[in-house]
Amino acid sequence: MSIVTPGFHGRGRPAADLPPGQYLTEDFPVLSAGPTPRVPTGSWTFTVTTETGREYRWTWAELLALPAETVTVDLHCVTKWSKLRTTWRGVPLDTLLADVETAADFAVAESYGGYTTNLPLADLLDGQAWIAYSYEGEDLTAEHGGPARLLVPHLYLWKSAKWVSGIRLSHDDEPGFWETLGYHEYGDPWREQRYQGD
């Protein structure tokens, strides 16, 4: 069902490379639910915790020492803006999870400041996700999730947890922060999975 709003013409016509309901922006808007945590790299760690409680931890220096990739990806925010061809540098989750023994199907990304978001473990693998620490050739600013954030560009951007502190693996899908507040558990922009039930 769709009705015409008289007198509305719009401006752009749908670009083939935008998911439904999105519009293009050249800015990089900021969205977060609270104050921006400031995390010094000296005390920063990233921890993968398996379903059995085993922990794998990296310091900032250890993260930077891992092989990194530079990727150019499109970002889609559930608040409707999309930003195309953004360039990031970071360590693929494939690398971080390579030696992790797990039979888990699900992951919860956890952040400094308490934010969480859930996703299937499969969505973090096969070249789909990174721990990113550089944006457009510069250190990632705190506003945009620095010193390091999760980057999972094939899902709405709230899944790309800013200020990431770790990944917890689990047999069960546990809803994260926005997922318990009415947002979609998976969040595929191409299927316009914004809210629960979409």
Binding site: S2, I3, V4, T5, F8, H9, G10, R13, P14
Partner: peptide, 9 residues
């Protein structure tokens, strides 16, 4: 909002 040609925003 939907325009007459079906374009939506």
């Amino acid at each position: 909002l939907t325009a007459e040609d079906g374009y939506q925003a």
